[in-house]
Design a protein around this nucleic acid. Structure first.
Lengths: 192, 192
DNA sequence: CGTCGAATTGATGTCATTCAACTACAGTGG
DNA sequence: CCACTGTAGTTGAATGACATCAATTCGACG
């Protein structure tokens, strides 16, 4: 599936063709190979990424060297390191590509100009933030209130397609358990 | 400590006296007694609450009847159920007062008008959202990557004053562990 | 075919939960 | 003023969930 950035803005945010024209010179896309880093820890993050095709992964690495996946971003999703973008601090997180991925790059300049020329964009952008908060809160609720099995089932229900696209150990890392544990959870579900 | 809403907007968001004047008829405050509900599950949330004095608690209750605290809101913090406000859905969460609490009520009408008359307010409001997302991401990182002790230490470091204001079982509920476990974690820290 | 990473499985260990008993303390009513 | 009650917090013993470590299998790919 491909999700063209400008088409997305038109259909979902209600941005008009005229408004888009004014933004043309600030819209860039870029393709990253599987495994390639879009953002390294310590870097200042300059863009919000919109995924047109492929899959990104937003994660941290603990002192013991373990990866913890905070978020997946498939087609039609946004990711960025807000610490870094808003407050000009070095990133605490990594972003890389789980598959060959094409993204639209939204600089702060783009976001500001788009917000100025398109009230629809500004509104939609805020909606995105609100929605993101909802999701994160729900995830926290699951993490503090549910066991591995329930969290896995919720993941499957929410992101059925990701199931098929990401290796199991990444799902385990997203759920906050070990790959071995996830394997056993799955085994239990099949026979149970 | 008291955090007057209008003073807060002036100092932190850069809202001017003139702008505030235009908003006077949309600003209301209300005081809730300890234990009183500000938002019940199933209700539609009509306001974002700004805490002027006291302490609020944003939480859910599982099927087994256990409370899971998603967020605390002491003086100078905002809380709301975004599901409910933005998308007009019945709330999945509760908000209640841990202490006698005075809040400023921001209706959607207020937020919209304030955003119109005060670009500073609009910008600040967006910053609040961005910052909220940062925090939630950090909390998720802790929940999937750290054990009870580390999460507790992080909590103490981040919210030293809350330590003294909320009962231990609430902190446990926030950390995603049982009160008994938290008691043991604390015991270990003292002797260790 | 051989290699490498992903996934499974078993044995064992660790951390947190559960259940129950007990202490401490604040509030209530006699 | 003291007994009664309820809630918070602590502690112990048993259990359960998930982690760890090690061995094996599976499958993709050069």
């Amino acid at each position: 599936m491909i999700q063209d950035f400008q088409t997305y803005l038109k259909t979902n945010a209600g941005v008009t063709n005229r408004q888009l024209e004014q933004l043309q010179d600030l819209i860039f896309t870029k393709t990253y190979e599987k495994g390639e880093l879009l953002l390294d820890k310590g870097q200042i993050c300059r863009h919000t990424f919109f995924v047109e095709e492929g899959l990104l992964r937003f994660f941290s690495i603990s002192e013991e060297g373990k990866e913890h996946i905070i978020q997946f971003a498939p087609e039609g999703w946004f990711v960025s390191e807000r610490n870094s973008i808003c407050f000009n601090e070095p990133s605490e997180y990594f972003i890389d590509a789980c598959e060959r991925t094409t993204v639209a790059l939204m600089s702060q300049e783009f976001v500001e100009k788009a917000s100025r020329v398109s009230p629809q964009f500004r509104m939609y952008n805020e909606r995105i933030l609100q929605n993101h908060i909802r999701q994160l809160q729900k995830r926290i609720k699951l993490l503090i209130g549910s066991n591995a099995e329930e969290r896995y089932l919720d993941f499957v229900r929410l992101y059925p397609d990701l199931m098929l696209r990401v290796p199991q150990w990444m799902i385990a890392s997203y759920l906050g358990i070990t790959p071995e544990s996830l394997s056993r959870v799955r085994k239990n579900l099949v026979k149970g």
